[in-house]
């Protein structure tokens, strides 16, 4: 995955059973962002792998004032990369 300067990780262990997972996102390299992030803390949130999209979450984070609108794409990409990795691991853990 490309180094976007925004780190996204699982906030709790994923057993592959629930469609909703908990993620944690924080800025590792503020220089990679166009706007100044509002807070330098880690933002924890839930994400439904089946119903939601990373773009929705990124937009809500911008609307909640965490990130500048110019950084919505990079935030969405960071979430998308981590979600893809989680789904890939799930497929390996329990193939259909």
């Amino acid at each position: 995955a490309e180094d976007t300067g925004v780190r996204v990780e699982l906030a709790e262990e994923d057993h592959g059973r629930k469609s909703t997972i908990a993620l944690r996102l924080w800025v590792e390299d503020p220089k990679k962002l166009k706007g100044k992030p509002k807070d330098n803390g880690a933002i924890e949130f839930t994400f439904d792998l089946e119903k939601e999209s990373p773009d929705d979450v990124a937009q809500e984070m911008v609307e909640s004032g965490f990130f500048h609108e110019l950084d919505m794409k990079i935030v969405a990409k960071s979430i998308r990369d981590r979600v893809a990795l989680i789904q890939w691991r799930r497929e390996r853990m329990c193939p259909e």
Partner: peptide, 27 residues
């Protein structure tokens, strides 16, 4: 600082907590 919470109008809850020093990248 203590955790803060922001609830978006769409209903998602964002919980902000300090990033552990070990997770911050050296400048």
């Amino acid at each position: 600082s203590a955790n803060t919470q922001v609830v978006h109008s769409a209903g998602r809850r964002f919980i902000v907590s300090p990033v552990p020093e070990s997770r911050l990248r050296e400048p």
